[in-house]
Design a protein around this nucleic acid. Sequence first.
DNA 1: CAATTTTGCGCAAACGTTAGAGTTAATTTT
DNA 2: AAAATTAACTCTAACGTTTGCGCAAAATTG
Lengths: 342, 342
Amino acid sequence: MNSPSYNSLKLISKKLGVSPTTVSRVLSGQAQKYRISPETEKAIKDFAAKENFTPNPIAKGLRLKKTLTIGLVIPDIANPFFAGIASQVVNVARAHGYAIVLCDSEENPALEKQSVDLLWARRVDGMILCPVGQTSDHLARYAREKRPLVLVDRVFPDLGLACVSTDNFNGAKTATEYLLDNGHRRIACLQGMPGTAPGQARVSGYTAALRARNVPFDPRLVAGDSFGEQSGYLDTKLLIQAAPDITAIFAMSNLLALGALRALGEENRRVPADVSVIAFDDQPYLAHLAPPLTTVAQPHLEMGAAAVKLLLDQMRSPANALRSGLLLPTSLIIRKSVQKIN
Amino acid sequence: MNSPSYNSLKLISKKLGVSPTTVSRVLSGQAQKYRISPETEKAIKDFAAKENFTPNPIAKGLRLKKTLTIGLVIPDIANPFFAGIASQVVNVARAHGYAIVLCDSEENPALEKQSVDLLWARRVDGMILCPVGQTSDHLARYAREKRPLVLVDRVFPDLGLACVSTDNFNGAKTATEYLLDNGHRRIACLQGMPGTAPGQARVSGYTAALRARNVPFDPRLVAGDSFGEQSGYLDTKLLIQAAPDITAIFAMSNLLALGALRALGEENRRVPADVSVIAFDDQPYLAHLAPPLTTVAQPHLEMGAAAVKLLLDQMRSPANALRSGLLLPTSLIIRKSVQKIN
DNA sequence: CAATTTTGCGCAAACGTTAGAGTTAATTTT
DNA sequence: AAAATTAACTCTAACGTTTGCGCAAAATTG
């Protein structure tokens, strides 16, 4: 009943009366190169197919120093933003024959470092990292060593590493302009985690838009310390106390927007009648909120796909691959959470 | 500048004047067993720590036939339900020293089979699979071979495999009873993908609740063919045409509920004033919808954690590990999408 | 002090591949 | 018909570990 289960070249080769080398060469598509006769080739291929034998990738990895594996480190796979990126990374990688080893850094720089080290220790061929975003010391070394590595989202532009991010500056600028176009002047900004590249770029976009329209920038309207729902809730509460005259909130993530919505509800401010809201990063559910949220959409899928492609480039030629920042455009998705005033 | 980078036992042993064997034994914690002197042990450990050397896991895997790797196959990592499970799988697995190789079957049985085969071919020590749910032929063989394998969510109870799922029957029964308690009699049911264990169990719970209260079961009120938003939207549209007198909709997933909400909005039926809605599976955003959705919550995190633990059991003793179904309780989270009528 | 036990370690083989350098027999060239 | 070429393989070593067995030196025993 149980098939003999041929699980090594040696067994197969014995069965077929050829050498392991020959089997290896046929199965790795090198039959031509090494002049294996068509008959032998067919016999081996047929037998391997019948017994569905695949050369042991572990042994292969040892011999070839290639594991056909890519490491992926993400701050929180349960966050839909990162899940979207991961989904595309997995799919594009598979299309190129690579498997993904997934690590979750839980938004924790120490765990991130540990994960990165673990993955290199496991001899992944390359790595895609969505950094937590606060420190980059542990990456400088790998940048110097020119290991195949691509940063996504919370990038560090000055490290000489390949990066994929969205055009956070212009995304935020456009969204702010949209609020200004609708007559808003007192626009609060929930900034997310300070010191991260996306956070800074978004706030810059916000202030740039204000400046261009000669709307005074009020630093008290910029608040928040993380991208999570808690910060959205709390800082909106505080904001309403400190500046009751705000007519709009620009939340730098969709979780922040969710928190802001909760706070506004409790304070009996209606959206958009009393306060307009724009979020950052589109998610399917935003269209179903009350009201449907206007938001700055980021191309998740493209980000994941681009990261894998940049990485494949590096893996092909570690020395002279492009190591620069790729900036993907955002788009403003207008729904019903912004109201024209004045 | 570049450190010598000791990357093999041989190099380390040469440097320290001992044999590779000794280094291996110390670094694998077998110093005691093989009577390595404390001084030698310390010297080796210190040196390894300083150069942060770890024995090559690939070579280790080849020799030991263990990869310290678990395969995880998921129908769609971008779906928050599965992302939640994955998150916990990754974290618990890491806590036990295992890395996760992630595959996405894209809700496609063929891709699922391919992923499963790929993972075994890569010599994962065990696998956690959230099956697409339609066919199980490709799993029977692995069940017979007693490979470490745990099914999650869309389980096949009769395969002799370890399974983790939620108590879909009672979850649906309780939710339906809640609707009945609120006076609803014409309750539509968006069933999700027919033929899957969760789908069937949920519909059974629904009909069981009706029967227990002597409410006639109308098969025309059960509709739908997948768990996605599209089905929720379309089938709600059709349902409203076919049975305009429905006062409640029980959606067997949160995406279905989202679709239903969209359809109801278009048809100018207010929720919950005209139609009450209950969803299945809680997600953070459900609390922020208009209205906040009452839903049957599933313990995602526990599901992932339980799956890893069952798997670890099997990997420790493949022969006599528990191979049965684990049923986790659901809880009804009451928000504002159900209204009392009559 | 000879015999035995213990201590501390090394040797060699094996895990399953693969690349380069042979090797043999058949075919072609001159 | 001898020499050269080509076809079709095989042999060997190496990738970096781990483990059973072996062995010299030191320590203990009688």
